[in-house]
Design a binder for these strands. Sequence first.
DNA 1: GGTACCGGTGTTACCGCTAACGTATGCGGG
DNA 2: CCCGCATACGTTAGCGGTAACACCGGTACC
Lengths: 345, 345
Amino acid sequence: MTPATQVDQADWDHPATIYTVAERAGVSHQTVSRYLKGESLRPRNRERVEQAMKALNYRVNAEARALATKKSHRIGAFVFDIDDWAPQRVLAGAAEAAREAGYILDILRVDPTDAPSVDDAVSLMNRTTLAGAVVISPSDTVLKQLRLERLKVPYAVEAEPVLTDGDDRALQHPFAQVVSHLADLGHERFFHVGGPRTWLTARNRLAAYREVIARRGLRSCGETAGEWGAAAGYEAMSSYPLDQAPTAIVTASDQCALGVLFWLQEHGIRVPDDVSVSGYDGIVDAAYYWPPLTTVAVDFALMGRNTVRSLLVSSGLGEAGREMPLGRLIARASTGRPGSGISEV
Amino acid sequence: MTPATQVDQADWDHPATIYTVAERAGVSHQTVSRYLKGESLRPRNRERVEQAMKALNYRVNAEARALATKKSHRIGAFVFDIDDWAPQRVLAGAAEAAREAGYILDILRVDPTDAPSVDDAVSLMNRTTLAGAVVISPSDTVLKQLRLERLKVPYAVEAEPVLTDGDDRALQHPFAQVVSHLADLGHERFFHVGGPRTWLTARNRLAAYREVIARRGLRSCGETAGEWGAAAGYEAMSSYPLDQAPTAIVTASDQCALGVLFWLQEHGIRVPDDVSVSGYDGIVDAAYYWPPLTTVAVDFALMGRNTVRSLLVSSGLGEAGREMPLGRLIARASTGRPGSGISEV
DNA sequence: GGTACCGGTGTTACCGCTAACGTATGCGGG
DNA sequence: CCCGCATACGTTAGCGGTAACACCGGTACC
């Protein structure tokens, strides 16, 4: 019978604790605790503790620590529209940033149309001890419903600065790029298929649209508002009077643009010969829409990262360093020189 | 100065504990603990405890319980391709099932191409005490990388039964539906644009394809393998010799089908007049592809539910009851009676 | 009527960690 | 030489639950 090595023993029976580590290192458990907290130790002891930890394969017990400190290494994330592309990417980025910082993201999916479920979610957050909370891609409505001030933990909301009409910064918004791109091609009559006005992101895109229109002396033939998906794009086209024959349709999302393309196809309107269409978001599939969709690729994951980071910073943990997400225009075949435009159909 | 109500007091200062509840109810803390565990109490005491809990807004402290029992009510979820549609839905289902069973799902997103991050994730899982772990939509490659045997907790992998050629159950696979649908329309020459062979799901779809082909005496003009996205579908079409003029192209995913449609469009091949195309998954956008895509809507969420359930069952917790996920054929304009097929292009 | 049994209850200890305080040691200054 | 002070370390007491055991009154049994 060969004796088990010390590692295996501690590993399987019961995982090593600071007490077993302390015993092996010949110090008190508190010294081990201090090592964990990064406080200063006498070099000799530090070395011994390190060796003991390695030998016993020590892992800190997150629950015990959480119980003692009343702090956890978990971040709650309020998520709403998990089906849409952008929020998903934001979430992915947030999850990644959290993991890098040694936190786990507890995802709490909430149906914004179901008021009691929103309340449940908030109280659930309060119940379990969390390091903080992040709110991913919220519309104003859910933000209002959440009443975040109820949260007893620090929180961060993923949000861009609010742009209003006439705000210079609107020209810096990535959405302005695609409008300018169309203007550069010679378009003068635009139509905006927008997202839900309850979303700041949709309003900002609209603001950027208006700003470019105004600054460059162009004409807007209309602005619609709807959901983010393809159905909304289709809906917008079929219900809006296009009597001013716009030559460029700028949509607030790629999926929305898909619905627009579908409607145009259905009505025998050629893209980009008759009318140009642009999307926004930069989803991968957009390259395979017919025709391939001009869009602006946005680094949504970075926005998620930033939200988590700013939460950690505001809690005094983690270092700052917020990179601004930039959009990158991807010009494809769905935009070209102005055509005849759409009139009556 | 109005005195705060008892609720607010306990709520804000420090949350109620079983001790404060016990004191208020006039029993010992252990009686409260027994109430929590669902053991029997004298009716009078039960009532008192319940009242005290409500009055103090008591919530159990998950950390403390976990520390005492060495069990947690959290399930870790390894997630890889959060970008794709199917895994996303699976995850949502898993989260829901977990919540219903009183667990929360800790989502751990891992980049499978980044080996150290995989290791980090596993050790993070081991560090925190978890009830178990589930692996969402893994390919064989990541499964190998994970080396799940390292996990010290029970785990379940989301997986369908392995289908091999000649397996009767292959005909039950939802993918068989779409192939049969095309056969019913009169198609005899098929082409399969498949997913990555490292994925069981892709292999099973292939097996179902082959089985229908074999049983109904049809002909397969080719089988390709690639990623799940549109690019792979395009790639498959452009690189494979289609000298046998298939009249039906059955793809392993909707996104993949998008790439196929694009290629066909590019080459002036009409759908479904010349060739029929089908997808799989049932993503929402598919209704707005051109032409609208025939597909099979799969209840991926249910698969996630099943995975979590089977984890709980294998841990002796929770009851069995695994419903088989069914697919629902959605016939749209991309499939029709056989056309001339594709030959040389 | 004593005894065994049993459900309901209280007491004490413990899970693995941190907080708070006490104590030993070393160093500079009066 | 003593004092003050800082630093390293040990001791004790909790965090909020559960586990294990002791206990107590009542019922069933011989």
